Simulated scan of single mutants.
Amino acid sequence: MADPHIQSPMDFWDNLTVIIYRIGFVVAALSFLALSWYPQQALLGILIAATCCASSLHIYLKHFRLTFQFATWIGLLCYILGAPELAFGGALLTLGGLCFKEYFCFRVPLLNLQPVFVLLLWFSWVFEGAILTRVLSIIVGALLLLLAIQKWRMPLHFDIGDKTKYQI
């Protein structure tokens, strides 16, 4: 997790990956808000968002960073192989976990509950609970939109923190 009070020198790649990471949250928010009306397109948007976030994470602990990246890669593979339920689950694991992490980094309200919301959303989507899916996708999308707005209001270096603490 980043230390916002520390400002490490940032190069082009640091700036680019922070921007990609933050764009991932915007795409995720819009995709979740569209999930009930355009499920195939929204699923693809959610997978793209998870890929943006997972490819550009700045998390000090290697095992968390690799877990989120691995979940996204497995999700993409499942999508390619025709298992959209598992693909959705992989993307939700990544996005829900990152929301939980962002809560502890920056204390954006209600993000600590996002993993529960995405788990319930996955179950309602898989078991075709249309009304519950619609309600939960709006809640998840709204929280992601709140996170995206909060993230874009912060300086880019807040996402990087102390580069010397990263496990390689």
Rank of each mutant, 00 (worst) to 15 (best):
T133S: 06
M154I: 08
S124I: 01
V126I: 14
A130E: 00
E128N: 07
W152S: 10
V126L: 14
S124F: 01
A148R: 12
Q114D: 04
D159E: 12
L147F: 07
A130C: 02
T133D: 03
P115N: 00
I139A: 13
L121F: 04
S137G: 10
S124Q: 08
L119N: 10
K151I: 04
P115S: 11
I160S: 10
R134L: 03
L120F: 10
K151S: 09
V140D: 00
I139K: 15
S137C: 04
E128T: 01
K151P: 00
G141E: 01
G129R: 07
L136W: 05
E128H: 11
Q150A: 08
M154T: 03
S124Y: 05
G129T: 00
V140N: 03
L156S: 15
F123M: 14
T133C: 09
L113F: 14
S137Y: 01
L144G: 12
P115E: 02
F127I: 01
L113V: 07
V116E: 02
M154E: 05
L120K: 08
I131L: 15
W125E: 00
L113Y: 08
I139E: 10
W125R: 09
V135D: 07
W125M: 02
L132M: 15
V140L: 08
R134G: 04
A142D: 04
H157Q: 03
P155S: 03
M154F: 08
R153E: 08
I139R: 13
I139N: 13
F117S: 03
I131C: 07
D159V: 01
W152Q: 11
P155Q: 03
R153M: 12
D159R: 11
L120H: 11
I139Y: 09
L121A: 06
L136C: 09
W122Q: 04
K151D: 06
V118H: 05
L119S: 12
